[in-house]
Design a binder for these strands. Structure first.
Lengths: 205, 205
DNA sequence: CTTGACAGCTAATCGCAATTAGCTTATAAT
DNA sequence: ATTATAAGCTAATTGCGATTAGCTGTCAAG
């Protein structure tokens, strides 16, 4: 019934593991449980399937981003919420972000696919940079800027604080994407990272 | 004359831009300046070319790593050299590492190729993790451990210090790999990162 | 009932890309 | 000089993989 949607799902799974060029339409069809020619009742070409995935991604990002408070749009007003943030809050926030990125099926596959295809298409490169670099950094920079102003954290360059906070998260994410068995170890290191971050930038001494 | 070598170079260039599956042997041949069938005088298949590249990479890494002091092998003895390290030294070290990774032709292509192929072959995944995560972290952890012991830096978990130092370098590297025009901006942010790192972990204050 | 559109199938088609065959030339060793 | 080998070329060959043609069954609308 919702074959059309299932094709996208299975195709995304395969693209994220092998890359567009190494996936055969017959594989997609098999994963869906139909024969290759039947795909063409739903999409007019392999490229068309890819484009549909991309469209869906772009649509879903805005919701997901605002849900996670990553997009940086309204960071300042949201930061009010965090004015009483403590070390444990920060740990929760960071591991939450990390584990969401890592485990959410859609987010993970999307990220892997973009990672594989990034050098072949500058649109994909920009998308990856936006979603995994610029948006998180700008959101967090605004948040830290607010926290510094409020006197919760020491006054340092908030862009660099955001980098110190986020780059390790991103780094560990790339490790776990290729070595899933290292998730536990990485989560531990992540927590140590946040605790130390908090001690360093926190007002307590 | 050294056609055999040139084939590897051109193939690496193409693989690092498009990925193995999207490169045709005819393209490699053209880049070298010969016809596709002539490639088979030097390598018995496309896969064989890929394997040869990989072998060369594995061989060259050890030299390059020890040259750059990344490998972590003899970090402790080397760390003696850094016992008088200052903020400027650290900035020089970090930007040097960053710009080397970013500009060295071989390193850049190798990294991009591994990035593209990482999810298709766990050997490649491990290689990428080793060279861009484990080795740099373990080297730097040993270095910071030494610097803390010497009293040059405040006493913090050296693994986390290494993560704080290195993850932003890696992060900015991935950004510049896909958006080369952001190199200047990224280098600036990198320097701010190191200065702040140095102020935070340094003894002065 | 019956018709049309939907979604599936099998069996072509079509093109491309890897590889092989077999010829040619140059050069280096005997 | 002769010959063997290396390294190139053009012209097949081969196989695979995307796509198209055309048939079938189902099922909702009239």
């Amino acid at each position: 019934m919702n074959t059309k949607k299932r094709i996208l799902d299975e195709a995304l799974t395969l693209f994220s593991e092998k890359g567009y060029g190494n996936v055969y339409v017959a594989q997609i069809a098999e994963a869906v449980g139909i024969k290759a020619p039947s795909l063409y009742k739903h999409y007019k070409s392999k490229q068309d399937i890819f484009n549909a995935i991309l469209d869906e991604m772009k649509k879903s990002y805005d919701k997901q981003a605002s849900m996670l408070n990553i997009s940086g749009e309204d960071a300042v007003s949201d930061a009010e919420v965090y004015s009483d943030i403590g070390e444990d809050e920060l740990v929760r926030m960071a591991t939450g972000l990390f584990l969401y990125f890592l485990h959410d099926d859609y987010a993970q596959k999307f990220r892997k696919m973009l990672t594989i295809e990034q050098f072949r298409d500058s649109e994909l490169a920009h998308l990856l940079t936006k979603e995994y670099a610029d948006d998180p950094l700008s959101y967090q920079s605004a948040m830290f800027s607010m926290l510094c102003k409020k006197g919760v954290l020491r006054k340092y360059d908030p862009d660099v604080m955001a980098l110190h906070f986020y780059a390790p998260i991103y780094f560990l994410l790339t490790v776990c994407d290729r070595e899933p068995q290292r998730e536990t170890e990485s989560t531990e290191l992540l927590k140590r990272h946040i605790r130390q971050f908090s001690r360093i930038y926190g007002k307590g001494e």
